[in-house]
């Protein structure tokens, strides 16, 4: 593969992410990885449901009393928006518009950082209430499920940033297009998981 080959929007392939064999391999491999991730989160969700509200006798925390729905709703909106902005970024990637892609990725990253900041604030708040990691089975299951998602967000952000910096000078080619594409795919996956967290942990927690 020639990294110096210059593309124009006309010569740019329709599906740059799968234009090479490596791209195709990464594409399939990444979907398989997401399958494994799905099973991982399924296990975490199942455990959470089994341990929800369980603690030492007399534990004061319950999911209906603890969670701050307005904050979490704001976080949900922010993350959903960031998924949308990453769609724009990939749209511009497919049109070989590097600058626009970088700009939209930048917005995505900003939104992600805000999300992560709010999550840290949220956790910090609960810990101050006395709901620490070692408080109960409930707290362990909660922080592990939501925290694993948070770690994914952190990884996704680092991935975007590394790609943006690494390629800032050289633009798009069929070598890095799959990387951008997959990072965005990963971001969507994180978003979907969050939708489930919002529903299962927070909404169902509030009504129970």
């Amino acid at each position: 593969m020639d990294l110096n080959k210059r593309y124009t929007p006309q010569s740019w392939p329709d599906h740059p992410e799968t234009a090479t064999l490596e791209g195709k391999n990464k594409f399939i491999g990444f979907w398989l990885l997401l399958a494994a991730e799905t099973v991982t989160f399924a296990s975490l969700f199942a455990t959470y449901l089994a341990l929800k509200d369980r603690g030492p006798s007399g534990m004061e925390f319950t999911s209906s009393g603890l969670f701050e729905l307005p904050l979490v709703f704001a976080m949900t909106m922010i993350l959903l928006t960031s998924s949308l902005t990453s769609v724009y970024a990939i749209h511009h990637m497919k049109n070989h518009n590097f600058k626009a892609m970088q700009a939209w990725l930048g917005i995505t990253v900003l939104l992600g950082v805000v999300f992560l900041g709010l999550e840290i604030y949220e956790f910090n708040h609960y810990v101050h209430l006395g709901f620490g990691y070692t408080n109960s089975a409930f707290s362990a299951a909660f922080y592990t499920l939501v925290g694993t998602h948070g770690a994914h967000v952190l990884f996704g952000l680092s991935w975007f940033i590394a790609l943006m910096i690494r390629n800032s000078k050289r633009g798009l080619n069929t070598y890095n297009a799959p990387k951008f594409y997959l990072a965005a795919l990963y971001w969507h996956f994180i978003d979907v998981v969050w939708v489930f967290i919002f529903t299962v942990v927070y909404l169902m927690g509030a009504i129970s």
Binding site: L51, R54, G55, P56, Y133, A137
Partner: peptide, 14 residues
């Protein structure tokens, strides 16, 4: 290693 209680029955674990 980090004091969680997934399997600790007294702490609500299973």
């Amino acid at each position: 290693m980090f004091g969680a209680n997934f399997f600790v029955v007294e702490m609500g674990g299973n």
